[in-house]
Design a protein around this nucleic acid. Sequence first.
DNA 1: TAGATTGTTAATCGATTAACAATC
DNA 2: TAGATTGTTAATCGATTAACAATC
Lengths: 202, 202
Amino acid sequence: MEIPDIVIGRLPIYLRALTRMAAEGMEITSSHEMGQRLGISSAQIRKDLSHFGEFGKQGSGYQTQYLIKQLRRILRVDGEWEVALVGAGALGRALAHYDGFRDRGFRISLIFDNDPAKVGTLLNGFQVYDTARLGELIRQRSTTLAMLAVPAEAAQQVTDALVKAGVRGILNYAPINLVVPDGVWVQYIDPVVHLQRMTYYV
Amino acid sequence: MEIPDIVIGRLPIYLRALTRMAAEGMEITSSHEMGQRLGISSAQIRKDLSHFGEFGKQGSGYQTQYLIKQLRRILRVDGEWEVALVGAGALGRALAHYDGFRDRGFRISLIFDNDPAKVGTLLNGFQVYDTARLGELIRQRSTTLAMLAVPAEAAQQVTDALVKAGVRGILNYAPINLVVPDGVWVQYIDPVVHLQRMTYYV
DNA sequence: TAGATTGTTAATCGATTAACAATC
DNA sequence: TAGATTGTTAATCGATTAACAATC
């Protein structure tokens, strides 16, 4: 009954591919066609989707737009999540300016940095607040998601503050493992880890 | 005999944790202690390592520095890989300035962009070259790794040029699936995918 | 109708875990 | 020695795939 994490993990990939296909004008697709694009077996795609309902038609396949809509609903990205960004260094600024969040369900709406030279400035139209005010402001706005773009040394401390303020999901760009209580989710992005996963084979 | 991809995928995580532990002054550790930090069972860590040799001592555990050295060797990051960066937008610039590559085995040494206003400028001390010269320069320097920080629309085309020039591993920041021939590896970084993996649970 | 593709079941495959002898 | 931890085997668990009836 419980849906495996690994299945949930693939849904955003399906959603991304379908959105692309829709943009290319494809109104209908099939598990076989999706699998070809993604390097995944068609059986796996059908099995994954079957955890959530029946979205296709025998003989013809899936209506692209309809499946997109369903996946957005399942993943709960049919609305817009407000995301806090901690760290306004080079990476933080790049994230703040990235325009790919908006139409996929997210918006950075609260930015923090502990550098007095940055506090009070605007970043993509948003105030940069002092990290000291993190708890206060996140609680006030009931923000539940955050991105961490601070040095590794500060990451755990900031995480503790985020969790205490009610954040439930953290996208961590710092190259360090975070300790969080049950009920808080962390995803990691570390380019070096990804590069090191390729050098073994190259 | 063949080592599973999923095992290779965990080694960089072990390496990162061990490096952290070493920095904290820990000279010895155990599979149990590592597992606690990473939220992984000690049995899995021992099993993973056993694919490559025997690195520990019964009763005491692993010498941190020795295990780091072995993992670096296994992953082939005991030297320094030259990496090409394609795309000098906000993200590309953040990557070019990131100082966390160097001591983990990588160095961005070749930067491309197709914006005439950027071509010829310096980025972290390196020339920005016209993307039109990508094939020529990558071949000349025998670069085998690349990071892709270009818009989704350009990603496949740039990928084809990279592969043709001899690149064997691509770290793709564009939110799109790439098609590559056998023998070429791709790793994906898409913050939205990671965020969407959490919203289901939050 | 004939061809295609779904959703699902059962079989296969592979990964994780538990347990323990070996031994530091 | 007594306690601790490794490396490995076997058992368990879970994920993927193959196959096909249902049906558009």
